[in-house]
Amino acid sequence: MATPQRETIQKQIQQDWANREYIEVITGSIKKITDFLNSFDMSCRSRLATLNEKLTSLERKIDYLEACVSITYFKFDNKLIIFIYIYT
């Protein structure tokens, strides 16, 4: 009863299994890449947030120091004269 036609169909189905496995492997890999990108994203966000925080803190410190130190400068006798007042 093993007609050649049946055999072809069985071969086709077998080929289908192989193809689908190939697709699954590719899909799985894409999934892995997606997971990687997601965790890369999280990690970057975390680190950027930390960096941002440090920068903000530094900026605020500079603001504070700038307020502490008031600088006056003017030209006198072709020389730049700078006065720095520090209230501490």
Binding site: T27, S39, F40, D41, S43
Partner: peptide, 28 residues
Amino acid sequence: NVDVLDELTLPDEQPCIEAAPCSILYQA
């Protein structure tokens, strides 16, 4: 190459107390 991605360390210091965050959603 894809497998190598696993070996990259991606530290994220925040404790996980929220639902799954995903920037990219992949569903086949």
